[in-house]
Computed example of a mutant assay.
Amino acid sequence: MTTIHPTAIVEPGAQLHETVEVAPYAIIGAHVKIGARTRIGSHTVVEGHTTLGEDNVIGHYASIGGQPQDMKYRGEPTQLVIGDRNTIREFTTLHTGTTQDRGVTTIGNDNWIMAYVHIGHDCYLGSNIIMSSNAQLAGHVQVDDHAIIGGMSGVHQFVRIGAHAMLGGASALVQDIPPFVIAAGNKAEPHGINVEGLRRRGFSAEAISTLRSAYRLLYKNGLTLEEAKVQLRELERQGGDGDAPVKLLTDFVDASQRGIIR
């Protein structure tokens, strides 16, 4: 049976699974859908056209599904869609999308989103991401699986952070971070491959060695970006255990719209 504290407000039309828990003074809007075993903290507001999956934990005073901070927004019924098993801590702000983009802000599964984090309109977050306290994403940012974003960092709109990449604390990111790369600073610059993170996730020694070679081609050998792309494709074609990660990195660099950090 759904556990809703008597002081909480659940507007007519909201769809809550029978196992959802809603703490004191929380407010759930009319267009909200919440999946099984999700817990909503006290004084939290979940509004807009927001869907929460199963087994999420939302901290106190969070603002989930608010209108996008975009001056072009005119009240369109855009969405926020959150997957399963996410932890979203206190005072976080997650906004719905805009019609200028996909119209939906998307959060995947198994993410750890710490206190005071802001995720702007039309962002796309994959799964198994860590965002430390006070990290801020502007609109239209994409963060791929297993990325880590340090506390007090700011990410410019339309930037993409690749899979397994790491952005250090108190950094300002204005261009894309390729997969597997560590970046830090104001403005953020590359500082090698996220070796320890890759080891923890089961990457082989061969794969890590190949990625280090790819990093040298991209950043250390004095090549232009176009020259580095050619060399990266050649490294990818050599095959072996490390070729799939190199392909992921090279495909990312080819697809970058804002350009990668250099």
Rank of each mutant, 00 (worst) to 15 (best):
I177S: 03
P179G: 06
F180E: 01
V181A: 04
I182A: 03
I182C: 08
G185D: 07
G185V: 08
N186M: 09
N186P: 08
N186R: 06
N186S: 09
K187L: 14
K187A: 13
A188M: 08
E189Y: 10
G192M: 09
I193G: 07
I193L: 10
N194P: 10
V195Q: 11
V195L: 09
V195F: 07
E196A: 05
E196T: 15
E196Q: 13
L198T: 04
R200M: 09
R200L: 08
R201L: 13
R201W: 03
S204A: 10
A205S: 12
A205N: 12
E206C: 05
I208P: 02
L211Y: 04
R212V: 13
S213Y: 10
Y215M: 07
R216L: 09
L217N: 03
L218R: 03
L218Y: 07
Y219K: 03
Y219L: 02
K220A: 12
G222D: 08
L223V: 03
L223F: 11
T224R: 02
T224S: 15
L225D: 10
L225V: 10
E227H: 10
E227N: 14
E227D: 15
A228P: 02
A228N: 05
A228Y: 03
A228L: 04
K229W: 02
K229E: 09
V230R: 05
Q231V: 08
L232T: 02
R233V: 01
E234R: 14
E234C: 07
E234V: 14
E234Y: 10
L235T: 01
L235E: 00
E236D: 12
E236A: 06
Q238K: 14
G240T: 08
G240A: 06
G242V: 11
G242T: 09
D243E: 09
D243H: 11
D243R: 06
A244N: 10
A244D: 07
P245D: 05
P245N: 05
P245V: 06
P245W: 02
P245C: 07
V246Q: 00
V246C: 06
L249S: 00
L249Y: 02
L249G: 00
L249W: 02
T250K: 01
F252P: 00
F252M: 13
V253T: 04
V253Y: 01
V253W: 01
